Simulated scan of single mutants.
Amino acid sequence: MNKSVVVIMTLLTFCGSCGKNEDQNPPETENRYTMPEESEKHEGTWLQWPHQYQYGVAYRNSLDPTWIAMTQALVTSEKVHIIAYNEAEKNRITGLLNSAGIPLTNVDFKIYKTDDVWIRDNGPIYVRDKNGNLVIQDWGFNAWGEKIDDQSGDPIQFTNCNSIPSKIGKDQNIKVVDINSIMINEGGSVEIDGKGTLMACKSSILNNNRNPGMTQAQAEELFSKYLGVTNFIWLDGQAGLELTDQHIDGFARFGNASTIVTMNTDDLLDFDVKQSDINKLFSAKDKNGNPYTFLKVPLTLHNVKKTDGTDLGYKGSYINYYIANNKILVPNYNDPNDAVANGIIQTLYPTRTVVGIDVRNLYENGGMVHCVTQQQPAN
């Protein structure tokens, strides 16, 4: 994301052995949880609908069409769980969906106050415990290292978004594993191949604005324990480059257990990925020591322009797509390379249909489709 930002809040200090309940203090050698890979069957997808209460009506209205398009694509794939700020917003959203002719059979609503739309980063992380039961992990969220402001330029609160996983768990009667006091970790910071490998940029995790003093070994121990991974692909990333301190899911994703979807070297450099990180990415190996296959998707041909014609001054990435049960939601930008990217990504998912989602207005804030969706695996 590219929004400049500032927020004040005390970051809880990492403590690897001071968990507040038994779920935070399992035997150190035991991997108690496993995170399903995104392409596994979903029960549904979670969306936090844009509202006016943080950034104003114009912001909300500019993003509504993207959320309508995502809902339209997803309702024929799986359930769509929409988080609305209040009853008035629920009624407004219902009206938008009805006007678009979208059936509500597969749609349900939860009324929770939210601070923003980025549910990939603040929402529930669904994992399976050692008995195969689905549980929710509630990792700490502090607005990407305490840096974002509201429409008036004042620091925003992010406690509403940070409380979303626990609220969902309570409503669904699903066990919630509280990791807030152990580690700050956004969902967009990590990629999982479903076979024991995690890919991430150190800059968005091993950063004193999230986890002061945490070492790489400590982070790996936590990821092994809570996500069930044993092999790590670490890129350095660039702290301060943009809002997220360079989330991995903007430029490199696991398309499947053997494929990394990314860009060619020139486009990665244009996307501000360091050459040293590009070298590490292309030399990555899975937990068995096998090299990955790389599917390379171009950036947009032109700089992205919002729907009102405003030139954002940078190109758009297609890598931040979302894998649903029978659809692939790919960010699109009204650019000649939309069709090229959609076609390349389609080759990786022959049993799913690629749907282009216009994210031009959302992209002003740095995010794309993957950033604003969160999967709930099937039981």
Rank of each mutant, 00 (worst) to 15 (best):
M1A: 09
N2G: 09
K3V: 09
V6R: 00
T10W: 04
T13D: 14
G16M: 09
S17M: 14
D23H: 12
Q24F: 04
E28T: 07
K41A: 10
T45M: 13
W46I: 01
W46Q: 01
W49L: 05
P50M: 07
H51A: 06
Q54E: 13
Y55C: 04
S62N: 13
M70Q: 04
M70K: 00
T71N: 05
T71V: 11
Q72E: 13
V80Q: 03
A84M: 06
E87I: 05
R92L: 11
R92G: 02
I93H: 14
L97Q: 05
S99L: 11
S99A: 14
S99N: 15
A100T: 08
P103E: 11
D108M: 11
F109G: 05
K110Y: 09
K110F: 05
I111G: 03
K113I: 08
V127I: 14
R128V: 14
D129N: 10
N131L: 15
D138G: 00
F141P: 03
Q151W: 07
Q151A: 08
G153Q: 13
I156N: 03
Q157L: 08
S163R: 11
P165D: 06
I168Y: 02
Q172V: 01
V176E: 04
I182Y: 06
I182R: 05
M183L: 11
E191W: 08
D193M: 12
G194F: 09
G194V: 11
G194R: 10
A200E: 01
A200M: 05
C201Y: 13
S204P: 04
N208R: 03
G213F: 06
Q216W: 05
A217E: 15
A217L: 08
A219Y: 07
E220Q: 14
L222T: 11
K225D: 00
Y226H: 07
L227Y: 15
L227W: 12
G228T: 13
F232N: 01
I233E: 01
L235P: 10
D236Y: 12
D236Q: 15
L241C: 09
T244W: 05
D245C: 05
H247V: 00
I248P: 10
I248Y: 09
G250R: 04
A252N: 10
R253L: 02
N256P: 02
T259K: 02
T262G: 01
M263G: 12
T265W: 00
I278W: 07
L281N: 01
F282Q: 06
N290F: 10
P291Q: 10
T293H: 12
P298H: 08
P298Y: 06
K305T: 11
T307F: 14
T307W: 15
T310W: 13
Y314N: 03
S317M: 02
Y321N: 10
N325P: 05
N325T: 09
K327P: 04
L329T: 12
V330D: 10
V330R: 10
P331E: 10
P336F: 03
N337I: 02
D338E: 05
A339Y: 04
V340L: 02
G343E: 12
I345L: 02
L348I: 08
P350V: 00
T351D: 11
T353L: 03
I357V: 10
I357K: 03
G366A: 07
M368C: 06
V369M: 06
H370E: 06
C371L: 03
V372M: 03
T373F: 03
Q374W: 12
Q375M: 07
